[in-house]
Design a protein around this nucleic acid. Structure first.
Length: 701
RNA sequence: GCGUUCAUAGCUCAGAUGGAUAGAGCAACAGCCUUCUAAGCUGUGGGUCGCAGGUUCGAAUCCUGCUGGACGCACCA
């Protein structure tokens, strides 16, 4: 593929071998090839600092001189694709033949299409990604967006590279907050049940806020919540299976399911928890509040309603999961974990609670409370083991905020202990087997907090309101733009008509503009329903693009200082800038009216000449495009979508410069043909990245 | 107190794993729409890379100390 780098590799291997009598492997040679920081220095280089083990000793400048002379003497070996070699300080810089470089790159993009830039690993992995994971008792706020978007993007990037990805939403559907929610439901007599049916999440949020407020002044709330939760937990754990049994069963079920279809088996926990057909109503309140079964059903209903709501929100921003899991499911087995760890001596009792001491971490890891109830660390152990049984993952990524770093290092540490002490586990081959496989496969992909995020007056920001705010801003801008373009056009027409009436030439302009006018939505009239719809959809996509890009443009670990003005500005380093660039290319391509479909056949004849005025600008674009594979690679390596954000911004910027400085319409066929391939290449790469970043692509803005 | 992490232009951030002259975008100022979408492009100003040491041919990047911020540290998740 990369003939330049390959050629250079062979070149340096031969030089070192023949001139210095030292054997160098290709991978070693590859490490010697660097990229100069500035295009004016060249395209590839060797730095004398790195050549010392290969027979080029002495002061860097001297060593560089030595190497330079050899390179020059043997330049003939690479002269077919390299233009020249220069020495500058300690660096030997190589300049590619740009016309060859450009057509190589463009050819490859046109041939590979949306596959371009794929960084195929030696061995594809099964990667489980745990992200978003909202708490059901709380509303879906903007805080969840970062995890959601980073997780989804990483999932797409891994899948793009050919890994098998399993996207998991681990719902917080368990814990004392449910006791509170049930308490609220049972305490307040004025619940509007018809409203509950219409907008359950809103009502639940109302209950949530109200009970937390009352809790401040009423001590009985907490007690009641605890009791109700205990009732719930007890009801759930009645008739439970052993963890061993469960592990064996899910493995069989899951693998059977996978065999039968390409897609992962739909074992959403929904089915297991499907609610009974008992309506929420005043009449049934006694049942829901007075019996254990009733509370369990109430919990199921809350859970089901919340999941439906989440799904609706996810769908609106293009997010989807392969599996919804819940803590409740794992809570069932956390006692088994406690027993196994205690029995085998990996855990001990301290102050009544069960703890594990993890090497290198001072804080003890609590796996069970002194009253015997579970903690989320033990539930996470259960979950990881279950997932190993279900998915047989090579790697599992937790996309969770960095404030939970300690929790995950404890969790990971415990799996290290489980692996080392597997022999001490007494019964059950399933648990022993799966638990000891996990060490080293877990990754915490942490991200920074969003600081200063609040509504202009309030505190918690709902995701939907956030997006709506961005959408409105986009619509405002869109309407403004439509108006400006109409005004300009009518000014043009008036002007031309005036000229015509004065006998000046201008007929062509007039007819052209009249044509154009028919394309513009009826300027003076109210926009039709269809047009309104169009404006709505466009501004929605722009809004979503702005919001999502805002979370993906900086490196994950940095805390973001939230600023409305930054999010609502669609200029510069923003999602809309990228969307705009794509739609510009789309528009240009359609105006060029060339047949894109025969590009592949024409690929051999793309030619870019040094004498063309746009040559250097095209080269910059090609060079950027060429870097996609490296960018994708490091995005995976670092679990960092922002590598791609920056990459896309740079590419868009190069393109927009080109667009500004060079016109294509009206140029001769051969000139245009090659450039169409270039345009298609830019668009292909930008669209790929937008897809990987979960940002909607717009044909027209 | 212990631990993790961060500090780069007025603001928001990049900086390819220690290499050539530290870069963008906002904001400010000055320009570019009769010509492919001005959500664009061009130019100007703006920096002791928090401070002080150290490691070496070479440091924004690695080490130590200090200052300042964020987060976490026993029965919440």
């Amino acid at each position: 593929m990369d003939i330049f780098k390959e050629t250079l590799k062979t070149f340096i291997v031969n030089i070192i071998k023949e001139e210095k009598k030292i054997d160098v492997s290709k991978p070693q040679a590859e490490k010697l090839i660097k990229n100069p920081p500035d295009d004016s220095f060249g395209d590839y280089c060797f730095a004398a600092y790195y050549m010392q083990n290969y027979g080029f000793q002495g002061k860097p400048e001297t060593a560089a001189g030595d190497l330079y002379n050899l390179c020059i003497r043997r330049f003939g070996e690479i002269a077919d694709i390299f233009d020249k070699i220069e020495i500058k300080g300690a660096y030997i810089n190589f300049f590619v033949k740009r016309e060859i470089f450009i057509s190589e790159v463009v050819k490859e993009v046109v041939d590979s299409g949306s596959d371009y830039g794929r960084d195929i690993p030696e061995k594809p992995l099964t990667v489980a990604v745990d992200f978003s994971s909202p708490n059901i008792a709380k509303p879906f706020g903007v805080g969840h967006l970062r995890s959601t978007v980073i997780g989804m993007s990483l999932s797409k990037i891994y899948a793009f590279c050919g890994h098998k990805v399993i996207k998991i939403n681990y719902l917080g559907d368990f814990g004392t907050q449910f006791g509170k929610l049930i308490t609220a439901f049972c305490r307040y007599g004025d619940i509007n049940f018809s409203e509950f049916e219409k907008d359950p999440v809103k009502v639940l949020y109302g209950l949530y806020v109200r009970i937390h407020k009352d809790e401040q002044t009423d001590a009985t709330v907490e007690e009641e919540a605890k009791n109700r939760f205990k009732t719930l937990e007890d009801f759930m754990s009645a008739n439970k299976r052993s963890f061993e049994e469960y592990l064996g069963a899910i493995n069989v079920v899951h693998n059977a399911g996978v065999k039968n279809s390409d897609k992962a088996a739909p074992t959403e926990t929904d089915a297991a928890y499907a609610s009974e057909n008992i309506k929420l109503s005043v009449e049934n309140k006694n049942f829901f509040c007075g019996t254990a079964e009733g509370q369990y059903n109430l919990w199921k209903i809350f859970r089901k309603l919340s999941i439906e709501e989440f799904k609706r929100i996810y769908k609106s921003i293009g997010i989807e999961f392969d599996f919804y899991e819940g803590e409740a499911e794992s809570a069932e087995f956390s006692k088994d974990i406690k027993e196994i760890l205690l029995e085998s001596g990996m855990a001990e009792i301290s102050e009544g609670a069960a703890i594990v001491n993890v090497k290198g971490i001072k804080a003890p890891a609590l796996i069970a409370k002194s009253d015997g109830t579970s903690l989320y660390l033990s539930r996470d152990i259960v979950t990881a083991v279950s997932r190993m049984a279900k998915y047989n993952f090579d790697k599992m990524i937790y996309v969770v905020g960095s404030e939970q770093a300690l929790h995950f290092s404890q969790l990971f540490g415990i799996f290290g202990i489980l692996k080392e002490n597997a022999e001490k586990i007494k019964d059950g081959k399933n648990f022993k087997h799966y638990a000891s496989m996990i060490d080293g496969r877990l990754v915490h992909v942490k991200f920074g907090r969003i600081i200063g995020m609040s509504t202009r007056k309030g505190n918690l920001v709902f995701l939907e309101d956030y997006i709506e705010e961005a959408r409105l801003k986009a619509q405002e801008k869109l309407e403004e733009r439509l108006k400006v373009s109409e005004d300009n056009l009518s000014a043009e027409i008036n002007d031309a008509v005036k000229k015509l009436s004065e006998g000046i030439e201008g007929l062509e302009t007039v007819t052209e503009n009249v044509e154009k006018q028919s394309l513009i939505p009826e300027s003076k009239k109210e926009p039709s329903e269809k047009e309104k719809e169009q404006i709505y959809l466009t501004s929605l996509k722009v809004g979503i693009g702005a919001v999502i890009f805002n979370d993906l443009k900086t490196r994950r670990t940095t805390d973001v200082n939230f600023n409305w003005d930054n999010v609502l500005s669609f200029e510069g380093q923003t999602g809309p800038y990228l969307q705009y660039t794509v739609s510009r290319i789309t528009s240009l391509l359609s105006r060029l009216k060339e047949n894109e479909t025969d590009l592949k056949n024409a690929a051999q004849s793309f030619s870019f000449s040094k004498n063309d005025t746009d040559f250097d600008d095209i080269f910059l674009i090609a060079k950027q495009i060429y870097g996609l594979k490296t960018a994708v690679h490091s995005a995976v390596e670092q679990n960092e979508p922002s590598v791609l954000s920056s990459f896309a911004l740079d590419l868009a910027s190069y393109f927009n410069k080109y667009y500004q400085n060079h016109r294509l319409i009206g140029r001769e066929h051969d000139y245009v043909k090659s450039r169409i391939a270039m345009l298609v290449s830019v668009k292909t790469v930008l669209v790929s990245i937008l897809n990987l970043l979960c940002i909607p692509v717009l044909e027209k803005m």
